[in-house]
Design a protein around this nucleic acid. Sequence first.
DNA 1: CTGAAAGCGCTTACAG
DNA 2: CTGAAAGCGCTTACAG
Lengths: 345, 345
Amino acid sequence: MKKINSAEIARQAGVSRSTVSRVVNSYSNVPSDTRDRVMKVINENEYYPLLCGQLLAGKRTGTIGFFWISDSPIANDIQSSSFFVHVTEAATEMGYLVLACILKNLSDKDNIEHVKKIYMQERIDGGIFIGIDNHEPLIDELVSKNKIAGVFDYHRPECAEPNRISVNFETSTGIKAIDYAVSMGHTKIAILDGNPERYSCLTRHEGFLAGLEKHNIPIRKEWIANADITEEHGYKAALDFLSNAQELPTCICCQNDSVAFGAYKALREKGISIPGQISIIGIDGHFRGQLMNPPLTTFEFNFKKFFRSLVTRTISAIEGKDGYDTTEFIDSVLVERGSVLDLRK
Amino acid sequence: MKKINSAEIARQAGVSRSTVSRVVNSYSNVPSDTRDRVMKVINENEYYPLLCGQLLAGKRTGTIGFFWISDSPIANDIQSSSFFVHVTEAATEMGYLVLACILKNLSDKDNIEHVKKIYMQERIDGGIFIGIDNHEPLIDELVSKNKIAGVFDYHRPECAEPNRISVNFETSTGIKAIDYAVSMGHTKIAILDGNPERYSCLTRHEGFLAGLEKHNIPIRKEWIANADITEEHGYKAALDFLSNAQELPTCICCQNDSVAFGAYKALREKGISIPGQISIIGIDGHFRGQLMNPPLTTFEFNFKKFFRSLVTRTISAIEGKDGYDTTEFIDSVLVERGSVLDLRK
DNA sequence: CTGAAAGCGCTTACAG
DNA sequence: CTGAAAGCGCTTACAG
């Protein structure tokens, strides 16, 4: 079974390679009898044009990179894992393949090099990033090299290149969380903040503070802790904070649901009941929230929407379309479950 | 910023393209001063050889395909999602990239075509499959075309091609599950069987029956139900079976943990206590098992090991090594949690 | 140790 | 409507 190329198809069909190429690429200027004859030979031989030849002649790869930066094991988190599926499904629907890449961090030079190499070798037409700091230099570099980068949770309004694309969480969730806590009668509100390098964490942090101010609730430093973005950090931060606080809050607003799960664990260990003694509010709408005891009240985001938006616009950039937005903000929906006590009753 | 190719590097470094190629590919027959001079120019220009040129000249892609066939939404299952991570991490460690592809099924001609095309365009050096029937013709076809396929849960001892690679669950889990149930004093044992097209389901089914026979427990047809491999099916099968059985068993051996989760749900709805009235035994070691109430007793597999084994041997085939096993069987470990009542006490 | 040349497979602008 | 030719970027066997 020798390898077959377009010359062999041309020979068998009695046409030139140009015509074979025209048929393969569905050009209109081929009479249907010629087309049929060529297609017959193609099918008989199960001929598929080699991608490398097409690329060399200037075609695109039809592939997007999916770069996932996370130093915690993604494998153990349903929510994160689902992101991969969302990206792949969205790309597949648009006729693109996904080259997946998991990296522990971008502080390692080798990892940066790995990503650059994938772009520069032209393995992909563009890439999607998740887990990136808002000022990651790698993105700047790729953008300046005219590479296309679609980044999850990333906002750089001072930059307006059409190849710097992003999707973001609404910026109002922090304030919405405080509004809700207050509406349930809470004024003793603690905050488990996130990693300020992440755009979402920053806006949530600012929202929390703005919310407190709006309702004339004095900010108590000892009730604000940094919990990064993982359950583990949330647990430690909550434990630390519960052990040292002189007075306990009645409600904890968490930077995200994973952090909230950590807080659950810490509260349980301390023998503090949820929501009897302390209420908890999450952000994200993590699958696990509904399995918790009590089920977590949270501001839910539709992550499928995030990735669809990001993939769609990244592909628009790849295909040279215009008129797409370089960023988009996605709204949350409050999902009231069992973790917040109504103090007004 | 014009595109730079090996000719330009050669020009700047005052050597031929052959020498540039030798430096890029770390050939030994280049004196170190020449090498340094060329490397300097390469670095200054941030030159990366285009993959398509290398491929055309005969290099490999350094990419493996990951084909995931599942008609249920993978996104919602932690265990399945983790598979993606295991494959990607194993491949990355071996210097390979992963081209990911999710397909709802292989009964659709378009999906078959999609997979074949990816192979035939030479986008990948080989592929990993999960969710495949044991006699899927696509695998036979790829193998006959000298393509390399590494399949999860697939055993065809009658075939011995070096490019048909697989990793499997030990075949003894079914019998081990019955042994364990009997050792806990159970003799009224029901079985939630799986999809017999899957090799693992088949061997578990046979193991269950062999186990009953071994312990001289008569097989009661009304206590054997087909539950496919999902929670949903497990739920329906258990509900159906509980509604119609004239006598209830004291223990249910499930084909896998997902099916067991379905059984939990059915039992809860029927007001039957676990393990008070009915014990449940799972197989897999699904993350969720430990979060269940009561935590699920199961035969746990190390899935990381599965994918590492599969990826490693698939890459051995790609690289033309020999001496690798075309299949490997992975053992389970009994994890006793709270879902099995000890009737001997 | 090194270069000229052949070869890999495709597409497309051009000419007819 | 169709073909001959140029061009895309690399590697490697060969000759020296």
